[in-house]
Design a protein around this nucleic acid. Structure first.
Length: 680
DNA sequence: GAAGGTTTATC
DNA sequence: ATAAACCTT
């Protein structure tokens, strides 16, 4: 019991009692006050979406009940300023210490650093820990001590670090509760009335909470992991880990995932099980991508709004809200894209493969600003995660050094036959195409009139013609790219001539989110029809909705059983049974009862990996932090200068010499979330 | 064993 | 789209 007073353990995206270093430190120090502050306004544009808030709500309830069984409970605060709320708790409880785990999104970096400064100034001793990564971003550097700029090099290094990621900590046996009698909890509201009906359905498919996360991990590692490599390319096979939302909220620690999976790896390696080994490597790689997303965010805090390669700032994006809407609604005329978008809409979930397909289409074919797509993912994904989304979209957009080439267009037709060779996925989500033979399922526009007729399809009427032809997209993309180079050259020239500041010019400001999008998100009409169909949609959106019959009829046995069990058993099953909302013809409706897919493979856009740091890895690799666990909130290292010669960018991209902080020396004090999340 | 064709993964 | 890995001859 150091210090006499009790300590605050500030929970954020580490909603677990196991392997939670901040909690462990609090318990070690004596009496604990567990606090969660809900201050979504701090996130600016990135106010969490409906399904994400639903998850959070469940997860907090789960955590609270775990804490209760250990001897304390969760103090909850509704706030617009986390730090003030923490100060209130300090005042009300006389706490003398604050413990929390690191986050790496730009808003948290700024806020947490301030929290540390302010609370320290108030005499509170603050310590923070790594609980989200195998290695802290500042631990992983190249031979010259500079951060990596490509994923493969980064990951290779992670896998060959001289020390392993720390072993997971056990949960505390019990917690001595601090005195919270004078510290009242606010009732946190995560959903409004109109959202409840839709949210209720999520519970059929998912079980948030750390112990469920644990079960999900065990189930995955002992089951689908083995075939992960084989199944990963199918749009809807069942070998996804389904861990991404759990990982996002820190319900399970990545280090635990890593160690678990490694054990299997060793086992399979000994058995000479090559497929198993490969599966492990691939799965770990997706964990690595999550890890890398934090790494990128830490090193380039603007990566959620600015391309990391500077010249992409000059790309003439097509600012067309009509295209954007068609994409969201799944009405682009490309079946694979449309199926994906409708699944996303209906379930909040998308297989990683399909995320790539729809986002690539968005950027390369429609040439819409990638941040719009990223924002939409943020709003709709159950596992929405800013860092992972930013990495994914930047990768797709070709704005990463090792991302896809700018001029590459994925053809949804060809990709479709690869990841959905029999068209099952498309038929599941696009009932209007259900009767189309496989031969044409991914390119109905080529189908003979008689075939279409027999399938009840009238292109342009009940299913759209391609919104943009691939060929013309190619042409337009070439033009856009040459335009981009011209723009860049012009800007460069202007800067050289001293005409422009090079900072704050228009290219710096990301294209604002469409007004309509914000409106829609806010006033989304919802209709709840308790039993039959719950339709959630944008005003004009005609997309499938989830029905309450989440399990297909064939699984009746399961149906009647305790749903929670069946869900656990069958792996979190994404919603099943989709009905087409109105406007669908009768015959199509018949086909509309489809079951869902379980997605496969860890969503790319959300994973992590890593390695560990041993206790005394305190020998900081880079200068960015002074002291590791125990210590200090991550700080950007201003001095760590121009490691990025290889990037083209000048001011904002990776390319920039050095970091964000250098350009904004006082950012961790002055920069606030409004500025960071500015869309311009 | 080399040349040449085919598959496959790409972060 | 490309390149590396893989397989064939």
């Amino acid at each position: 019991m150091s210090g006499g007073g009790c300590s605050i353990v500030w929970f954020r995206r580490d909603l677990r009692v196991e392997d939670n270093p901040a909690l462990a430190a609090g318990v070690r120090a004596g009496a604990v006050i567990a606090v969660f502050v809900w201050a979504p306004e701090e996130e600016g544009h990135y106010y969490p979406g409906r399904v994400s808030r639903w998850w959070l709500k469940q997860s907090l309830a789960h955590l609270d009940s775990s804490l209760k069984s250990l001897g304390t409970s969760l103090v909850t605060k509704r706030s617009t300023d986390s730090i003030s709320s923490l100060l209130e708790v300090v005042k009300a409880t006389g706490a003398t210490q604050l413990f929390f785990n690191h986050l790496y999104d730009p808003i948290s970096l700024v806020r947490d650093h301030r929290a540390k400064e302010i609370l320290t100034a108030q005499g509170v001793s603050v310590r923070s820990f790594n609980a989200d990564l195998l290695y802290e971003p500042w631990e992983v550097n190249d031979d010259e001590g500079r951060p990596f700029t490509t994923f493969s090099a980064f990951w290779e290094k992670c896998l060959s670090m001289p020390y392993d990621p720390e072993a997971p900590l056990l949960p505390p046996k019990r917690i001595i509760s601090g005195d919270v009698s004078r510290c009242r909890s606010d009732n946190l509201v995560f959903e409004d009335e109109s959202e409840k009906g839709s949210n209720a359905l999520l519970a059929r498919a998912w079980s948030p909470g750390w112990s469920n996360a644990d079960k999900a991990l065990t189930t995955f590692v002992n089951g689908p992991l083995l075939e992960y490599s084989q199944n990963r390319r199918k749009a809807d096979s069942a070998t996804t880990s389904f861990l991404s939302p759990h990982l996002h909220f820190g319900e399970v620690s990545v280090r635990k995932v890593f160690h678990f999976v490694r054990i299997k790896q060793v086992l399979w390696a000994n058995e000479g099980n090559k497929a198993g080994e490969e599966s492990v490597n691939l799965f770990l790689k997706s964990i690595g991508l999550r890890e890398y997303s934090r790494y990128m965010s830490f090193n380039h805090p603007h990566s959620h709004e600015r391309p990391l390669l500077g010249h992409l700032r000059y790309f003439p994006w097509v600012v067309d809200e009509g295209y954007f809407k068609a994409w969201r609604q799944g009405r682009t005329g490309y079946p694979l894209v449309d199926a994906g978008m409708r699944e996303l809409w209906a379930t909040g979930w998308l297989h990683d493969r399909i995320r790539v397909v729809v986002s690539s289409f968005f950027v390369k074919v429609l040439q819409l600003p990638w941040r719009w797509g990223m924002k939409y993912f943020w709003d709709t994904l159950l596992d929405a995660d800013l860092e992972s989304d930013a990495l994914g979209w930047q990768y797709i957009s070709g704005t990463l050094p090792d991302g896809r080439e700018f001029d590459r267009i994925d053809n949804p037709q060809f990709v479709g036959y690869k990841c959905d060779p029999h068209g099952e996925y498309v038929r599941r989500w696009l009932p209007e195409l259900a009767r189309l033979p496989t031969e044409w399922i991914h390119h109905p526009w080529n189908a003979p009139e008689s075939v279409l007729e027999a399938a009840g399809i009238e292109l342009g009427s009940n299913y759209p013609l391609p919104i943009v032809e691939i060929d013309s997209a190619k042409v337009r993309l070439e033009q856009a790219l040459s335009q981009m180079w011209q723009n860049e050259a012009a800007a460069r020239a202007a800067i050289e001539n001293g005409m422009e500041e090079g900072h704050g010019d228009s290219a710096d400001s990301p294209i604002a989110f469409p007004q309509a999008m914000q409106m829609e998100m806010e006033h989304e009409p919802v209709r709840n029809n308790p039993v039959i169909v719950t339709v959630r949609r944008y005003e004009d959106q005609m997309v499938p909705s989830m029905t309450s019959s989440l399990f297909r009829a064939a699984d009746d046995e399961e149906n009647s059983v305790d749903i929670r069990n069946s869900v656990l058993e069958s792996r979190a099953e994404v919603p099943t049974d989709v009905n087409v909302a109105e406007n669908t013809r009768r015959d199509t409706l018949d086909q509309a009862v489809m079951q869902t897919a379980r997605t496969n493979a860890t969503p790319h856009f959300n994973f992590a990996v890593g390695r560990r740091n041993s206790e005394d890895s305190t020998a900081e690799s880079s200068s960015s932090t002074r002291e590791r666990d125990g210590g200090v909130v991550p700080i950007w290292s201003p001095s760590s200068t121009n490691y990025s010669d290889q990037y083209v960018g000048d001011d904002n991209g990776i390319g920039t010499s050095s970091s964000y902080l250098q350009r904004h020396p006082q950012s961790h004090q002055l920069m606030n979330w409004q500025r960071l999340s500015q869309t311009g």
